[in-house]
Design a protein around this nucleic acid. Structure first.
Length: 264
DNA sequence: ATGGTGGGGGTCCCA
């Protein structure tokens, strides 16, 4: 089972890119973040025609929005908390039948956190830290089996998850309060499926700012997108790809997709 | 040290 995660930065604008991704990779499950489409306007039919009739989505007007698309049946997990009681469409979860048993998929879009890394000065940063704290506490008390967490977690936890550790220590996405919290969340019972394949002394990015004239040449990337799995799925983890080429497609997202293969 | 570029929905928010 091939599972893709992608911050698509507007689903409706980038439907053609999603079709191209589907053509090239043939995923079984696609988890999207920043769909930016309210549920009544969700492109249900277009995605069905693309081969994904099973859809779990949580969208709102203008911002945020997550979706899980699948070729096979999805059972939505509906009793997830409303993090920070904001009702802001940052988490969707569903169960799907895998080759050797059911898999539970949690798709997250963690708040970006604004520019100033100070909880008192910047409520967005405070919200980001509180969000991760709440999610961590929830996973500590819900010990899940055969579970995958994917999404734009908006934190690059390791030194080689950013182009310059030293220069980004005070930049939101790589500050110690954030990286410490992301590690605490991971350590509630998950394995970093990307770093399972790429050692932590190698640079690994999934996001390059729109503000770099030549993103590939400057290569000032960050690993903001993640795939985590519970240890009981490690034996069936057969591959991981960062689909870096999509960053050069016409009108790209600033994030690139990540795909894992969970075999039997 | 600064500003650089996108998407959404409307004349400014968010990333």
């Amino acid at each position: 089972m091939r599972i893709v995660t992608w911050n698509i930065n507007s689903l409706r604008l980038r439907l053609p890119l999603l079709a191209e991704l589907d053509r090239q990779l043939r995923p079984d499950v696609i988890c999207l973040q920043e769909t930016k489409v309210p549920d009544p306007l969700f492109p249900h039919e277009a995605l069905k025609e693309l081969g994904y009739p099973h859809q779990v989505r949580r969208g709102m007007k203008g911002y945020n929005g997550v979706a899980i698309l699948a070729r096979q049946a999805l059972e939505p997990v509906l009793d997830t908390p409303d993090w920070c009681e904001k009702g802001d469409c940052r988490h969707a979860a569903a169960r799907i039948e895998g080759e050797d048993g059911p898999v539970e998929i949690h798709n997250f879009y963690v708040p970006a956190g604004g520019d100033i890394p100070d909880e008192d000065e910047n409520p967005k940063y405070a919200h980001k830290l509180a969000f991760v704290d709440q999610v961590t506490a929830w996973f500590e008390t819900h010990h899940l089996a055969r579970t995958v967490i994917v999404g734009d977690l908006n934190i690059a936890p390791l030194e080689n998850d950013v182009w310059s550790h030293k220069q980004l220590l005070k930049v939101v996405s790589h500050t110690p309060p954030e990286t410490t919290r992301l590690n605490a969340w991971l350590n509630t019972g998950f394995v970093d499926a990307m770093r399972h394949f790429i050692p932590s002394d190698e640079k690994l990015y999934t996001w390059w700012s729109y503000r770099n004239r030549d993103w590939s040449a400057s290569n000032r990337g960050r690993r903001l997108d993640h795939v985590w799995i519970t240890p009981d799925l490690v034996a069936s983890l057969h591959g991981m790809q960062v689909i870096r080429e999509t960053r050069d497609w016409a009108s790209p997202s600033d994030h690139v997709p990540v795909m894992i293969n969970l075999g039997a």
